[in-house]
Design a protein around this nucleic acid. Sequence first.
DNA 1: TATGAATGAGCCTTCATTCAT
DNA 2: AATGAATGAAGGCTCATTCAT
Lengths: 188, 188, 188, 188
Amino acid sequence: MAANKQEDILKAALKMFALRGYDGTTIPMIAEEANVGAGTIYRYFENKQTLVNSLFQNSVRMFSDTLRSDFPETGDMRQKFAHIFRRMGEFSEQYTETLLFIDATAGSYYLDDQSNENFHEFLSFIERQLELGKKEGQIRNMPSKAMISIVYGAFVQLFKVKRNGLLEATPEIMQAVEESCWDAIRMH
Amino acid sequence: MAANKQEDILKAALKMFALRGYDGTTIPMIAEEANVGAGTIYRYFENKQTLVNSLFQNSVRMFSDTLRSDFPETGDMRQKFAHIFRRMGEFSEQYTETLLFIDATAGSYYLDDQSNENFHEFLSFIERQLELGKKEGQIRNMPSKAMISIVYGAFVQLFKVKRNGLLEATPEIMQAVEESCWDAIRMH
Amino acid sequence: MAANKQEDILKAALKMFALRGYDGTTIPMIAEEANVGAGTIYRYFENKQTLVNSLFQNSVRMFSDTLRSDFPETGDMRQKFAHIFRRMGEFSEQYTETLLFIDATAGSYYLDDQSNENFHEFLSFIERQLELGKKEGQIRNMPSKAMISIVYGAFVQLFKVKRNGLLEATPEIMQAVEESCWDAIRMH
Amino acid sequence: MAANKQEDILKAALKMFALRGYDGTTIPMIAEEANVGAGTIYRYFENKQTLVNSLFQNSVRMFSDTLRSDFPETGDMRQKFAHIFRRMGEFSEQYTETLLFIDATAGSYYLDDQSNENFHEFLSFIERQLELGKKEGQIRNMPSKAMISIVYGAFVQLFKVKRNGLLEATPEIMQAVEESCWDAIRMH
DNA sequence: TATGAATGAGCCTTCATTCAT
DNA sequence: AATGAATGAAGGCTCATTCAT
């Protein structure tokens, strides 16, 4: 039951931040959700801003590690895309709040330099893959940032809709969306 | 210059909400941006929540009207898609903050029923078009909500990236993105 | 009734700081004593520390001005001493809390550089007079800091005792104390 | 080194209270200074207030005992004065923080009845000597409280200045101050 | 009508105190 | 006996909202 309080706090903060945003979430809300006293949060995090930044960096690391592990470096672009897309899907299925928290938080005024750097480092991993695919003629000649936007934006929106209970993310649908997204960027 | 204070307030609120979110924006911030006294805001809006809801409903109406006016009811799906996509592009180019405000705000805990209803009514207009397109076999057989997510999510993400100065939305790029999005939903 | 709220706040803060010290005084205590809302204090002072420092500088200025105005520059040491002592007495009679606040506050960790500087500037005025008196052979050859300590320390202590209701500072007593203090420093 | 933890705590508390006052000193500060856990303090003292009161009573007892031991009951006033003054000097030299703590603390709102009583009992010892001296015509006819204020106030102020590093309390200076203070109260 | 001074509820944070280890 | 993690009451401060001008 007791287990790790830092973990409990991070989990509660994630949930609340994903639900109500940083400024709409109070420390007492997090404390209550985590079943700890409000003061306890300050034994683990210097202040509210440190807490979001910790959480953001954790989240980005998890997401990044998920996409990068077992990455088929030697595969062709379609395989790489499949790897990334499916990993994103599995991750988002299991950690929907984490995905939405990352999305809602990236670029916010309360993130520190480290957080921004980590996030951009992650994006640039994706960007490098797309650049490779362009060179190999497998995907379109469009700015990588635009292509990322299309795939990432589409993907995240799907899970927002899912969170709101308007859509199930069944394997069939995920399969169809993967094809859609691939069609959106592959060379025709 | 003075003109309409209510207009000034809405414009200022839009800018600040888009920049810092609802809870991260204070009434004095809006008042300063609008060059009015803080008390003046309460002559036009009952309270902060009424203000966001007004703004949201205005924004959705503007967006919706833009997409619906001159809609080619009799055209084929590709034409309809082109209409919607280009209108979205023009609108977002001119009213980037409005687009991003709508996106950041939709689904938030502080929206009232009217706001939620208006937004869903708008979405269902798009959905109806997609359903038609599916029946006509021009676009894929995928849940409309998923398709909307793909196109809308991609589109909004593009403008988020643009706002952060990482990408220009040139006509060429918008043209390419339109094709990408169409490829993502059309029947192959 | 309304009059000047900043004045009310300073007066209340003075009273409470003199009574309970800086850290023992809460902003709500001051607000209540001043008959204003707690938030109002922050319209006039950036924070609690700014408030003490303002108050301290005001207080030192008042005290200093009182001793310096009409100072008998051309008189002999006894006359100068009488001037200073009586002015101190009148001031302390009228503004006992101000005197005790200055005494309790001088040297505290929460004073800023400006406050410390102002206070030392004031002390050095007294010191200069004593140095003159020593040169003229009218007062003892003892470090000025020691002589100031004797007179000032004795004086302040008297008013502490008075505040506690253990002693009246009648003209006769003040007269006697003046003689005592003069005897303590004059050349024998 | 370890020896007596209660002693360590009292010493640490004395130092911190003398430096930052009662309300400006936190229990963790004291614990750190005493090299004990914060909880340990509560094994020796019921709470913070009990701690100051213990410390105050200890301090007053030490001071009082110092002045009273070997007191020349049969000597004349000048001898008695010399005894008191020199004992005060030796005590303050060795236990400067104790002297300043007593001074800063006497009369504070957080002292309990016992503390106040002990302190007044101590003062009344001095007062009795002065009353005797007055009867014998060796010292002035001034309220004893005023005379105590003069000598005690002067004395304490000297050590405040010393603590701030602005003055050394050399034997010569102490000798001179003793004479000054005697001159301030003796019959002329 | 417009303002901004005033308010107090509520937020972030600290810290005296408790208690399981 | 000693610790320090945990707590929640309370402090400093902000800000949505009111209201006298």
